[in-house]
Design a binder for these strands. Structure first.
Length: 550
RNA sequence: GGCCAGUUGGUGAAGUGGCUUAACACACUGCCCUUUCACGGCAGCAUUCACGGAUUCGAAUUCCGUACUGGUCACCA
């Protein structure tokens, strides 16, 4: 086909496209950013909530843009109507919000490089396709699904490479007259790339994460525009990331195999190739096989899971940061005053293979997170959680605010804070003794009660208990009481001559603890007793007496 | 099947030719500290880096082959 015919064809195919490439190139000028600034983007399709893996890459996008003083934008990739879900876009914004990942530009906050929804950019894509037609780098292809399936079958039998390329691309060199005729018959068509590549050439690319990779050159006549005039991912990627001036394309590594196509697309369009960073998926091991975390099978793939279970979003982010950069964890452990934003992440500390999702590790990180929070903060956050997921307990928390904060603050000021809470929902269980009427209901039912403690002995002790003394004085007192009643003053002493004693102070404390808190473990006992006061303590001992039938 | 990548303890991993008798963290086990439980401390947990070969004075680190795992081969993204 001659050039004048191609111009005519382009006009015939896209009569409504009046703008030119230059128009858009001028509309979206180079960004004015400092040296080294990274422009990143997150491009989810609105299929409902955001998958943990996608969230992970959005997190990476935002982190790199922020720390390089660049820009991070959100682009909704909704070129496939079939996949789109009602309110899907909303879901994306919600999940991103929940994680406090805030794009600098998006459909909601705006920006100079919009629209940020692909379905509203059709005219742009078609303008570039039209130009490609004129250049002879794209063509309409009328093959039916059946024809393509047949070719595929043939290729499978012959064990040759699958796809539309070389002589399989039958519509590649259709004459202008033939095309016109089919068009006048209203035959449906797609626009395909007329690939200039040759698979016996090899191309090389350096990925920011995976390093140097070699591929055969792309030689497929890949679809650029679908039957409905909408672009495929590949084409939209090239156009959008060029026009929006993305410097770093950070995406899942399921895309590496289409890299040769993308490189070719940028090349024939005359665009500067961005840097690529392909992120390994977060995986899960099940029945011995490793697979990507799945939205359908794995609850932990959903953001809402963490909200419901009560794992703080910041703790999840901390976990993401530790699997993002292997040196983050040690840094965080050694810098208790700092947070994620203070750490500088880098591509070369990223995992190349998939990372197994480790709930144990998340739990541990979450415990550390809680241990660094003040009692007041833990109270406030738990209040917010229970309001949504545990209204009954929420009311109790509200009614017992002052005491609750006191309990949550025990052993918080030292250098080695307790790590007993991993989730907001743990507070109810771990601090079950804190709220009096809730404690009565519990009635020791949670404590297995195989060991019975001597109520009379404890009652005798309580008579001399002085809640105004210091912790040291208190302990000296209980020690003395222990000795007077045939108990050893320390576990060590007891171990030396077990037959000489009834037990040791620890046993006495344990008895006290069980009667007062209903559990065998708790924060500092004397602190708890001080907050409760004598009356409540005595009540609980009576309660225990009934419970143990003494 | 073609193409691409990966393979270091139960898990995440550090490691870029001699500093490695393989860091660190989680999990697990034991001990210590301790009024309990935690926290914290110490120790144990890969004598070996999928396997085979090659290069080298020297290899987890370089090269080749094999096996296995994952990704991908749509008018889905």
């Amino acid at each position: 086909m001659e050039k004048n015919e191609r111009i005519e064809l382009a006009e015939l195919l896209f009569p409504n496209i009046k703008k030119t490439r230059n128009y858009y190139e001028n509309l979206y000028p180079e960004r004015d950013l400092p040296d080294g600034a990274m422009v990143t983007r997150f491009g989810p399709s609105p299929t409902g909530f955001v998958h943990m893996g996608s969230l992970f890459s959005a997190f990476i996008d935002s982190v790199f843009a922020k720390q390089s003083h660049g820009k991070f934008f959100l682009r909704i990739e909704d070129t496939d109507q079939k996949r789109s879900v009602e309110n899907g876009t909303e879901g994306i914004f919600n999940d991103l919000n929940a994680f406090n990942i805030v794009p600098d530009e998006s459909e909601i906050v705006g920006g100079k490089y919009g629209p940020y929804i692909q379905s509203e950019r059709t005219e742009i894509y078609q303008t570039y396709v039209k130009d490609l037609i004129i250049q002879g780098l794209a063509y309409p292809c009328f093959m039916s699904e059946e024809e393509i399936a047949q070719i595929r079958e043939e290729q499978e039998i012959n064990k040759t490479k699958l796809g539309i390329y070389g002589h399989y691309a039958v519509d590649r060199d259709l004459s202008f007259d033939e095309i016109k005729e089919r068009l006048s018959n209203n035959q449906e068509y797609v626009i395909r790339l007329k690939s200039p590549g040759n698979s016996s050439n090899t191309i090389e690319i350096v990925d920011c994460i995976k390093g140097k990779m070699k591929f055969p050159e792309h030689d497929m006549d890949t679809v650029l525009l679908k039957k409905d005039g909408t672009p495929t991912y590949h084409f939209a990627h090239a156009i959008d990331d060029h026009l929006m001036h993305t410097t770093h394309v950070i995406r899942g590594d399921e895309w590496v195999s289409s890299l040769p196509l993308h490189i070719q697309l940028f090349d024939i369009l005359g665009f500067k190739l961005p840097q690529y960073a392909h992120v390994a998926p977060i995986t899960k091991k099940e029945d011995g096989t490793i697979r990507k975390l799945s939205k359908r099978k794995d609850p932990e793939a959903k953001v809402s899971y963490y909200e419901e279970v009560g794992i703080p979003i910041d703790a999840v982010k901390l976990y993401l940061a530790t699997i993002l950069n292997s040196n983050f964890e040690e840094w965080y452990l050694n810098n208790s005053e700092k947070n994620i934003d203070d750490f500088t992440f880098s591509f070369d500390k990223m995992a190349i293979g998939g990372t197994l999702f480790d709930l144990d590790k998340l739990n541990n990180i979450s415990k550390t997170y809680f241990s660094r929070k003040s009692g007041e903060d833990v109270y406030g956050e738990t209040l917010a959680y229970t309001e949504k997921f545990d209204p009954d307990y929420h009311k109790l928390l509200v009614d017992n605010k002052d005491d609750m904060i006191k309990f949550l603050s025990i052993e918080k000021d030292g250098e080695r804070p307790r790590k007993d809470i991993a989730k907001y929902s743990d507070v109810k269980e771990e601090f079950s003794y804190a709220i009096d009427n809730m404690f009565e209901k519990e009635n020791y039912s949670k404590y297995d009660g195989t060991k019975i403690y001597d109520v009379n002995l404890i009652k005798e002790y309580l008579e001399e208990l002085d809640l105004t003394s210091t912790n040291d004085e208190w302990f000296a007192g209980i020690k003395k009481f222990a000795i007077d009643h045939g108990y050893a003053a320390s576990p060590k002493e007891f171990k030396k001559n077990p037959e000489e004693f009834k037990g040791h102070v620890g046993d006495l404390c344990e008895a006290l603890r069980v009667m007062i808190t209903g559990r065998t473990k708790s924060p500092d006992l004397f602190s708890i007793m001080k907050i409760l006061g004598k009356d409540k303590i005595n009540n609980r001992v009576e309660l225990y007496k009934k419970f143990s039938n003494q």
